[in-house]
Design a binder for these strands. Structure first.
Length: 322
DNA sequence: TGACAGGGGGTGT
DNA sequence: ACACCCCCTGTC
């Protein structure tokens, strides 16, 4: 029998099961729709490559359903261990989803069936903060570009040869920089990473974090309200960014980030027109419960997919909506 | 194919 | 309510 290649690239491990099943669409929403900004789909190869911490991971979806992963052999032991935390493999997400109030909330039910199997990632706290400091008034492709530039210029290079398929897409596979590297770089070097007015915030945040050892770890360990208040002391961190960092980087699942998309859907589907974003967040936590963050993710992904505004809306509602 | 506005998943005043 | 900074995206 012809030896079919069982690893994506030389010196990478053979593909092995992740223990998680997702459709292609849900996988894309999980990896590349606003939770994380360091996943890239390699079209020619037909699989995803992503990074967090010092980990580099390839992820592919077998036609039969199960997800499989591979990583550089050098890191295999550590990465194998880190997977469980990053993908929250210990959480029964089907159960968490079922406990959301979809039975009495038809729109939520629609959003859930649009992204079956969706879950929340648990990314390293510090880098989640860095990524979301980049995110203000930026769209996902731009945020990905900013974080990639930060990694390339100030972060550590991978310990392995970068596969040609990655180099072709300008993926350096560098880790995101340490805060100390950002603080040492200074605002001007940061501006070179296309951060714009975010450069100053990121630089000041880095200096604060470097001069307060343990501050990040302590913040992550606090309960949601206290952790949020602490994060918001940082320049450039308001309600929305604090909520994102806590939801995707600290596992605070009651966090309910309110951005313009959520504002839109809450206005149209829940009648909260012209509500203050802070009140919308309060409503969200109240209405959706302890796992409001997961509900937010379902609403957000669906809203952004455009399905929400496809045919039917204008026509179906026309008589009364005027 | 290339130039050119418009506006962006927010924060802080 | 508006500046902040810059560049991606759509459009001509």
């Amino acid at each position: 029998m012809p030896p079919r290649s069982t690893a994506p690239w030389p010196e990478w491990t053979a593909w092995r099961p992740l223990g998680l099943e997702l459709s292609e669409g849900s996988l894309r929403l999980l990896l590349d729709d606003g939770q994380a900004f360091r996943w890239h789909f390699l079209k020619a190869e037909g699989f995803w490559v992503g990074l967090w911490g010092t980990h580099v991971l390839a992820l592919r979806l077998e036609p039969s359903g199960p997800l499989e992963w591979s990583c550089p052999e050098l890191n295999a032991a550590q990465t194998a261990q880190a997977l469980s935390s990053y993908f929250s493999l210990g959480v029964d997400w089907a159960e968490v989803t079922d406990a959301l109030p979809w039975r009495s909330d038809a729109h939520l039910a629609t959003c859930i069936s649009f992204a079956p199997g969706l879950r929340l990632l648990k990314q390293p706290f510090g880098e989640t903060l860095l990524c979301f400091l980049c995110s203000a008034t930026k769209q996902i492709p731009q945020i990905k570009q900013m974080t990639e530039l930060l990694a390339l210029q100030l972060g550590k290079a991978p310990r392995v040869v970068v596969p040609e398929a990655c180099r072709a897409l300008n993926l350096s596979l560098h880790a995101l920089p340490e805060w100390s590297a950002i603080a040492a770089a200074g605002e001007q070097d940061l501006r070179a990473c296309k951060l714009g007015f975010r450069a100053k915030n990121i630089f000041l945040a880095a200096r604060f974090i470097v001069s307060h050892p343990g501050w990040l770890e302590e913040t992550e360990a606090l309960e949601y309200p206290e952790a949020k208040a602490r994060l918001m002391q940082l320049p450039g961190v308001g309600e929305k960014i604090a909520d994102c960092v806590l939801l995707y980087g600290a596992g605070k699942r009651q966090s309910f980030p309110v951005d313009t998309w959520i504002l839109k859907v809450m206005a149209r589907r829940y009648g909260l027109e012209d509500w203050d974003p802070i009140l919308v967040a309060q409503f969200g936590r109240q209405h959706f419960g302890n796992d409001a963050g997961l509900a937010q993710q379902f609403l957000f992904n669906y809203e952004r997919s455009g399905s929400s505004s496809l045919p039917g809306r204008a026509r179906a509602q026309s008589p009364r909506s005027l």
